[in-house]
Design a protein around this nucleic acid. Structure first.
Lengths: 196, 196, 196, 196
DNA sequence: AATGAATGAGGATTCATTCAT
DNA sequence: AATGAATGAATCCTCATTCAT
């Protein structure tokens, strides 16, 4: 069961370079979108030859999907703080929003790529799009839970509506950030929503 | 179907075919984005040979920019109704939102393309992106005016903030619409904002 | 037999624009060679639309051939001075060489184009090449005559050899001029040959 | 004929195919010039796909420049004989000229391409032109040395002049050879120069 | 006499991908 | 695990040319 050091080293290298490729890919694909990013661009960015990518990934589609998956996990790890949920509702909203805002700032490549994929409508849907929509759903449910948790009196419909507005607001503010630069004022938005 | 490829149109008309190309381009580019749309795809969609496009437009960049410009004008014409502005604020909000919602539904290709361009960050910024951001600004100012008009008591800062949220909300709901389908509930959003 | 002013005007315009096209073409084709010069480049240079060229010339090949012909005639007119042929041989050589040198400086586009055509070896020989070789022959014979005239004692073979060297020297110095710039020192070359 | 297009060479060898491409390119480019030669023409001539050329060379410009460099080296190797320099000046001239003449006959593609490049004047000078002018300078200096060596009494200016005439004569005779065919009578030219 | 609009072939170059090593 | 060399389809764009007006 224990393998020789050499073998382990090689295996480790495989994982390592997969990591490296994924990191370089989020960055480029997050800037240029699916079609705008060439496999050759990765190799220019992160070292290994273009052909090497096919050792780790089936094809471009697979690579992009993996990028989305990987980035989402990274993002989740950032968001899910251990001890949450104390204080008045408004304090908790503020804390949550602050966390989210920070996380959005940290992974804009991921979101940018995801949104671009989401907006596209090509005949053969890239797997990356499907994956993004799934993880987006997961995130949406977390938000819904948080809202239900914060305002225990709300009916199911109201929670759904508020969630919709919150997600839409977050997306819209992200777009704004991409256009105008500057920090996303998610906290204020959440407070605004909380008042309503 | 009416003419074999080799048959030349009897009465060539520059303006007309420019129009035809623009219409075909919004649709395709609105589905696949800048890079995802090939010049050849236009010709397949709207008839004339790929090379003919270069009679009307300098290059792909110029074509996409023209598409944005043209679509925005079309959209403006839809939005700007002659006699608006009567009734209680809430009634007027509702009317305005309804108009906007309808218009967004009518020209999703334009907005989709614009948002994709806005999200992209390529080294040589496409002119279409610049144009989109400009017309977006124009639209933003109209919304600010409408808000200031609806709520005369609001300070400048509040108007700005409310405008930001409104635009962001509209963008976000548009994204949602692109993902989940279904109608954009802009009216409800505006009412929601109006209450706050 | 006399035509109305309008018709004459039109006819005159035809000749005029033919002239204009030829002038613009020597310049461009003399800089870029046969393949390097596009019909579109002419229109950019001399005004009329690219398609207009086909009113005056059958096709590109015909145009280039016409350019060679026209330029050669212009050049001949420059070279053939009315009263030549007086003074000692050396004086006459000097005069002739000076004339040639000046004329070469005045029509380098023509010679450049011609030499480029002469050097090329394409499967379908451009008619312009044929024309250039013909006019070149004509010029060569004139030089042979001049040499025979200058040195009456020379045998036929010697005249031929000297002509060959003179033409070769002129070509070579022209190439040198194109590379290094500066005036062609044809006069000195001729004196040098004369001494030998 | 030995392999169907889809069959991949078993043992790909970069250096070898680079060589093959260069050889094919001198030939074609030496016949048609820079613009007249299409990348597709190379692939038709030397086997590999047009796109494969971009593995060995950055672009067409780079390829042509490499061709010039490579051909010059080949030519130099032909010219530089080990033991020269014995006998009377005239004998040595004859020997040298004979060598040169033979070498010129052996690599006419190289010179033809180079001269065509030298004559062209395009806005963006091809790198191949620069390279050719450089190697031409090198060759010119060798000739100057040879002349200074052959006629020790000559002043610097006279050597320069004689070199100029010799180079010009060689170029001109090369042009003549391209036009009329037949052997280059360089030897006779050199003798002619030597007498003067 | 000239042009506006079009065409289809072909230009250089880049693409995702493959496969032997 | 990775790469060097190749491929063929596709990219944008320019070419010479045509023809109705």
């Amino acid at each position: 069961m224990t393998s020789s050091p050499t073998v382990r080293k090689k295996r480790a290298n495989g994982v390592e370079s997969r990591q490296r490729i994924l990191d370089a890919t989020v960055e480029i694909a997050g800037e240029r979108g699916y079609e705008g990013t060439s496999i050759a661009a990765f190799s220019a960015k992160c070292g290994p030859q273009a052909s090497s990518i096919y050792w780790c990934f089936k094809d471009k589609d697979d690579l992009i999907a993996a990028v989305i998956e990987h980035s989402f996990e990274t993002w989740l790890a950032t968001v899910e703080l251990p001890g949450e949920a104390t204080g008045t509702p408004l304090e908790r909203i503020t804390a949550m929003a602050a966390t989210n805002a920070r996380s959005l700032v940290d992974v804009p490549d991921f979101l940018r790529l995801g949104l671009m994929l989401a907006l596209e409508r090509r005949p053969a849907e890239p797997r990356g799009r499907t994956v993004f929509l799934q993880v987006r759903n997961v995130a949406g449910q977390k938000i819904a839970e948080a809202i239900a948790d914060l305002f225990p009196g709300l009916g199911e419909d109201s929670v759904r509506t508020l969630t919709t507005y919150t997600v839409a607001g977050a997306d819209g503010l992200f777009v704004r950030r991409e256009i105008h630069g500057g920090a996303v004022t998610l906290v204020a938005l959440f407070k605004f929503h909380a008042r309503a």
